[in-house]
């Protein structure tokens, strides 16, 4: 059974907000229609401001704490298992599929939670340079990541488009279209998970109308596209991105170590060894 019809809002800076444009779009769930915020240019701008401060907080949170916060996210989801299953089933999936998607989502969150305090050991290393120097390559999160969710309704897909950058300390602006309702539902659990405000902002809307606003925004360091966009749209994103040498990832891997590599900058530090 689905809960009472309610108004879904964008989740920005730890708060539930309507689009400043006042516009919404309609999605169908079961027999009902829901209005979701149609994110505007200004909403993107606000989200970036929030994500910048979120990045500072998240990046200075200890890896151990990040692990615990992400793990807590899985607990919050688990507590709301029924609502997720009902959304998925009302999106015309079978119960079995819905359960599998949900189960998978929990597993993925736990997997990434457990990676948050380990990934640096897997991707960084000492470099055996010549001469009396200590030389280490370690990684910094790249900054504010914009992630376009796949346009199919799947909780695990949503999770996989968000968790890799989040795990390494980036802040994420996630935009969903058809899957917006699921994403905004997920946003409600985030609020109870101790994730600091601004670390994860969740928006719904039509990306094709926001391409310039996102890909030209200099303070977004990376745009990752998990949806299948037209060649034309991709080209537009990449042309815009070139103005500020922005990184663009089209359908990046969401598996294993390669899932986090795009969101990292390698920093190499040298220091002499002497008496």
């Amino acid at each position: 059974m689905i809960e009472i019809k309610k108004t879904y809002k964008n989740y920005v800076d730890g708060k539930y907000v309507r689009s400043e444009s006042g516009k919404t779009y309609s999605v169908k769930l079961g027999n009902e229609h829901f209005e979701l915020p149609l994110t505007s240019r200004k909403d993107i701008r606000d989200a970036v401001v929030s994500s910048k401060s979120g990045f500072k907080k998240w990046n200075s949170t200890s890896p151990y704490t990040r692990t615990q916060i992400l793990y807590r996210l899985s607990e919050m989801l688990e507590g709301n298992r029924k609502s997720y299953l009902s959304i998925l089933q009302n999106s015309s999936f079978t119960k079995k599929y819905a359960e599998k998607d949900f189960e998978n989502s929990i597993q993925k969150i736990i997997w990434f939670a457990g990676l948050a305090d380990k990934w640096e050991q897997l991707v960084g290393n000492l470099n055996p340079v010549s001469g009396e120097y200590f030389n280490i390559s370690h990684q910094n999160p790249i900054g504010v990541v914009f992630s376009l969710n796949k346009n199919t309704i799947s909780l695990s897909q949503l999770i996989l488009s968000i968790l890799p950058p989040l795990t390494v300390g980036c802040s994420v602006i996630s935009l969903s279209n058809d899957s917006g309702l699921l994403a905004l539902k997920f946003a409600e659990d985030i609020n109870n998970s101790d994730l600091p405000p601004g670390v994860l902002n969740i928006l719904s809307g039509d990306f094709t109308k926001l391409i310039d606003d996102v890909s030209k925004h200099v303070e977004i360091s990376l745009v990752s596209i998990h949806d299948n966009l037209s060649q034309e749209a991709i080209k537009k994103i990449e042309v815009n991105a070139s103005e500020s040498v922005k990184r663009v990832k089209i359908n990046p891997s969401t598996e294993g170590i390669s899932s986090i590599l795009p969101y990292l900058e390698t920093k190499t530090v040298w220091h002499p060894k002497g008496t």
Binding site: S130, Y133, N135, P272
Partner: peptide, 28 residues
């Protein structure tokens, strides 16, 4: 420091085993 290479108490040191490259508009 937002920089791909940080030289502490030294500068302009290079080695084939040491990764080099930039943050931001210094490239990727």
């Amino acid at each position: 420091l937002e920089a791909g290479v940080v030289w502490a108490n030294t500068f302009n040191k290079f080695d084939p085993s040491s990764p080099f490259g930039g943050y931001k508009e210094s490239g990727f």
